[in-house]
Design a protein around this nucleic acid. Structure first.
Lengths: 264, 264
DNA sequence: CTCACTTTGTGCATCGCTTCACAAAGGGAC
DNA sequence: GTCCCTTTGTGAAGCGATGCACAAAGTGAG
């Protein structure tokens, strides 16, 4: 079963084989076909932007727009139009030259690519303030995702009903995950519990985790972890804010900063 | 006051002026000096990782570790050690060869670089489930950040007390932001209100926004917006999850997918 | 049909980040 | 002091992402 090439696939990013240079003798059609085929190699940066495009498209669709040019869609999504076109070209050739993209069709294609045409059962572990906020957050249930299980370790919380669902005790984690077909787990526990929860859900077969706890989770290969971290974001903002402040007050050449840095 | 060069600075990412090509005649020392000097040009990718290092360091400090090698720290932060060293080298030369980094000293240096030695007054706008979770979230108050104001548009929520602070009505936004010296605003409103809130806080002089609402905010140059978006993260996970599923079930060559894609 | 115009899809140059690999620098033993 | 060991700091190569600029491909008018 799935030898060599699976492993190769795993690391196969972007272009894969270095498409032959456009020597004038080679039939252009063959080259085209190859890059169209793309071998399932959509760049990570592109994948990260697809949800953005999807949201912009849904906005357009609600306002009844039937087709949209890359220029306009890029504007709505806040990106450069060349980037948008290149991103979409990784999915296939879904536009019409001289016209633009059919909004509904593009929504469908992006949704399909992102796997939103099926629905995903999501479990939330940890029902403190953040976990509750997530459970109640209607936005992400809207398309493709469904909260299928809630877990907490606190006996006072277990049994409580949230969004029409009882909170289960963490002891039943493995059993219920399996029974309800959960494939994505959201960790919203305190930092101290996060790694243990991760270990358990991974042992139960989960390979996609969204982590809100402020820790670096250690996971085996093949498990995807995405991290959302408030304090990190604030710290990045603070860095830039400080810089702006420095710039206004400090000397343009910034010699003082230097002196300070030097003697430290 | 601050003419031309301020604008230039604004767009000056990374290296700044296009360092002359490494023509063999140019004295290497000059180039060296320039990149060492860094002109306050810490790469964005590095800035984004500094909070991570800081957290790992705090963990080590709590356990009483005095010095740490780049190898160990990198392990704790979940990055490659060469990357860690290069990141830290952008801040200065704070390690000791043959020994490693002094944990306390490095904590101080990173904190200073991130601007965490001063404290930042943060306002939260929108106190639905998410806003409340953020207000209660102790983690980010810990170091450098302080919740200084809470706003909501709902009269039923205004006046309520959260984390020892009364919720103010959004009408008083500008006045209170100024009075309490707020410099970072967290938007946790519904999507429909987010742009208006952003416009108002920017008009009031705010230049750093952390946006939880699922919309692309349009802001003038000089304003930093960072976005945290649950549904985007879930969609990215779903994409990879789907891929993993395809890989197990589907044909390695993936001809079927093709047929399906073609007739659509 | 041809012509003018619009907009996509992409080759290519560029840029910035990552990673390797090693010289430089410090510590400790003797 | 010298020698050996450890670990940093960084030049340079590699790699992926970005954005320009344009040929290709479509529409619509006449």
């Amino acid at each position: 079963m799935r030898p060599l090439f699976v492993i190769r696939r795993n690391r196969e990013r972007g272009r894969g084989a270095p498409v032959a240079p456009p020597s004038p003798g080679v039939p252009a059609k063959v080259i085209r076909r190859m890059s169209q085929a793309r071998e399932r190699g959509i760049p990570d940066a592109t994948v990260a932007r697809l949800p953005l495009y999807l949201r912009a498209l849904n906005g357009l669709a609600e306002r009844g727009t039937a087709t949209v040019s890359s220029e306009d869609l890029a504007l709505a999504a806040g990106v450069n139009s060349a980037k948008l076109r290149k991103d979409l070209s990784h999915l296939g050739s879904y536009g019409t030259r001289g016209v633009g993209y059919d909004v509904q069709y593009l929504i469908y294609q992006i949704s399909r690519e992102l796997g939103l045409t099926q629905d995903w059962a999501v479990a939330i572990v940890g029902l403190g303030n953040l976990g509750r906020a997530l459970a109640n957050y209607g936005g992400f249930v809207s398309r493709g995702f469904r909260v299928a299980a809630l877990f907490d370790a606190d006996p006072a919380v277990v049994g409580e009903r949230l969004v029409g669902m009882a909170v289960d005790h963490i002891d039943q984690l493995e059993e219920i995950l399996g029974r309800r077909g959960v494939s994505i787990v959201v960790i919203a526990t305190p930092a101290s519990a996060a790694q243990e929860v991760a270990d358990r859900v991974i042992a139960a077969g989960i390979t996609s985790i969204l982590n809100f706890a402020p820790v670096v989770l250690t996971v085996p290969d093949g498990v995807d972890v995405r991290k959302v971290d408030l304090s990190t974001e604030l710290q990045i903002l603070a860095f830039h804010e400080q810089r702006k402040a420095d710039r206004e007050a400090g000397s343009p050449i910034m010699t003082e900063d230097w002196a300070e840095a030097m003697d430290a």
